[in-house]
Every structure is written in structure tokens, then in C-alpha cells.
């Protein structure tokens, strides 16, 4: 069980809703999977923590309330410095993204827990959501002026046919890089952790010498775990910062 580093990413059904009779089309069958379970756990944890910790509305914050406030200020400052005051209308959006990714990443660190963000479709969906918001808001706010994003200022007309495709590809690469970065970091980190943890298990089953030999992978696992916690937080931060920067492009398309 613990030896297969891939298994932790496997999606298994917990129960299914609807579609009782015909299984072959799967048309109306909705599976509640372990992935879905951890999404729900993530959301419930975030909401419960933030809402319960601020229940007292203390003028002098307690420890938990202070943590909530720090998260708030942290993201608020991030959005404000990247996207300006106008970007603050997206503050709840960026905050939700940040918290979702952060908590999902951190939950993934717990052994036997499923890492929601280690699936490309999840990170890709989040990135597409970001880029959709950018595009929709960009057009809503600037109209066709949003297309200036693809026309760098001060470029002579005859190179535009070359520059514009490059800019478009550059723009389209954003959701890809956003999602791939998060996904790859979580996936790679977890696989590495699992592999080293697997070494410990298989080595220690070899007897006394094996236990001695397992100390090295054990030390590696501890170090990697620390690193992974850092990476989890950092990737959530990067995701949120880049979201703010892209939103800034929607607000000020000419750069």
C-alpha cells in the first residue's frame, strides 16, 4: 500500500448519486469521490476556521482570530500592491483561491489524505477560472481596448503580425503555466515523499541492518516534509500573486 507512490493520487468512488440502472453511459451518474470529499473538507475547514475564529469580533484578537486577520491582511496587501485599489473588488476571489489552494496543499501533507491540487484538471480549472475572469472583466471594463494587451506600446506596425501571435501565445500560456506549476509541484513533491517513505518501510522490514539503513531515508523524508510544507504555502502564494497580476492586466491592459 505505502510502496506505490502513484496510488495516493488514485481517485476512488465513495458513493454515487443517481444513474442507478444504466452504467454504460454514466450520463446522470455523479460520483462522490475521495477528491470531492477532500474538496468539501477543505472548504468546510476554511469556512469554519475563518467564521468561528472571528465569531467574538474581539477588539483585541485572540490567537485564532489573529491568524484569520493576518491571512486577510496578507492577501489584501498582496492584491492591493499587485492590482491596485480597483483590484480590491477581486479580493474575495483571490482570497478564496489562495485559501483553497493553500489548505488543499496542506491537507495533502497529511499521510493517507488525498491532495486535491495534485490533479491537473483541478489546477487547470482554477487557472481557467482566473483567466476567464481576467478576459471577461477586461472586456467589460475596457471594451475592445482590452486588446491593447496584445499590442505592446511603441512597436512599429510592420512587426505587429509577428508580435501579436507571440503576445497571444504568451497570454494563453498563463493559465497553462499557472496550473502546471501548482500541479507539478504538488505531484512531484508527494511522489518523492512517498518514495522515500517507501524506502523506510521496505528497508526496516529487512531486520536490524535495514532499520539502521533506513535512517538516511528517514532523515530525507523529514527534510522533504519540511520542504514540502514550504512548497505548499509558496505555491498557494505564487498562485494568488499571479492571479492578482493578471487581474491587474485586466484593469490596465496597456503595459
Amino acid at each position: 500500500m505505502a510502496n506505490d507512490p502513484i496510488k495516493q493520487f488514485k481517485i476512488t468512488d465513495i458513493f454515487t448519486i443517481g444513474g442507478a440502472g444504466e452504467g454504460e453511459t454514466g450520463g446522470f451518474e455523479i460520483a462522490f469521490t475521495n477528491s470531492a470529499l477532500f474538496m468539501v473538507i477543505t472548504v468546510v475547514s476554511i469556512s469554519a476556521f475563518l467564521i468561528l475564529s472571528t465569531r467574538g469580533r474581539g477588539l483585541v484578537p485572540g490567537r485564532l482570530q489573529l491568524l484569520s486577520e493576518m491571512l486577510y491582511e496578507f492577501v489584501a496587501n498582496m492584491v492591493r500592491s499587485s492590482a491596485g485599489t480597483e483590484g480590491m473588488k477581486f479580493f474575495p476571489f483571490v482570497f478564496s483561491l489562495f485559501m483553497f489552494v493553500l489548505v488543499a496543499n496542506l491537507f495533502g501533507m497529511v499521510p493517507y489524505f488525498f491532495t486535491v491540487t495534485s490533479h491537473i484538471i483541478v489546477t487547470f480549472a482554477l487557472a481557467m477560472l482566473v483567466i476567464s475572469v481576467v478576459i471577461i472583466y477586461g472586456f467589460m471594463r475596457n471594451g475592445l481596448g482590452f486588446l491593447k494587451l496584445f499590442v505592446p506600446a511603441g512597436v512599429p506596425g510592420y512587426v505587429l503580425p509577428i508580435v501579436i501571435p507571440i503576445e497571444i501565445v504568451s497570454f494563453l500560456s498563463r493559465p497553462i503555466s499557472l496550473s502546471v506549476r501548482l500541479f507539478a509541484n504538488m505531484l512531484a513533491g508527494h511522489i518523492t515523499l512517498k518514495v522515500f517513505a517507501g524506502f523506510i518501510v521496505s528497508l526496516s522490514s529487512l531486520g536490524a541492518v535495514g532499520v539502521l539503513g533506513a535512517t538516511l531515508p528517514f532523515a530525507m523524508t523529514v527534510a522533504l516534509t519540511a520542504l514540502e510544507f514550504l512548497v505548499s504555502a509558496l505555491q498557494a502564494y505564487v498562485f494568488a500573486v499571479l492571479t492578482s497580476m493578471y487581474l491587474n492586466d485586466a484593469i490596465h491592459p496597456s503595459h
Binding site: 462522490f32 477528491s35 474538496m39 477543505t42 474575495p92
Partner: peptide, 29 residues
């Protein structure tokens, strides 16, 4: 299935954040 649940949970999170949690923290501050 992942997309569906992601959409549901993230929408719920967004609503809870934007309607309850963040205004409250903002007010406290």
C-alpha cells in the same frame, strides 16, 4: 466528477468568503 465537485465547493467557498467571513474580518479590522 472532479470539475463538478470543484465548481460546487469553490462556489460555496467563494460565497461563504465574500458574504460572511471577509466582511466580518474587514469590519473587525
Amino acid at each position: 466528477s472532479q470539475l463538478l465537485w470543484l465548481a460546487l465547493t469553490f462556489a460555496a467557498l467563494y460565497i461563504l468568503m465574500s458574504k460572511v467571513a471577509l466582511p466580518r474580518i474587514g469590519e473587525i479590522l
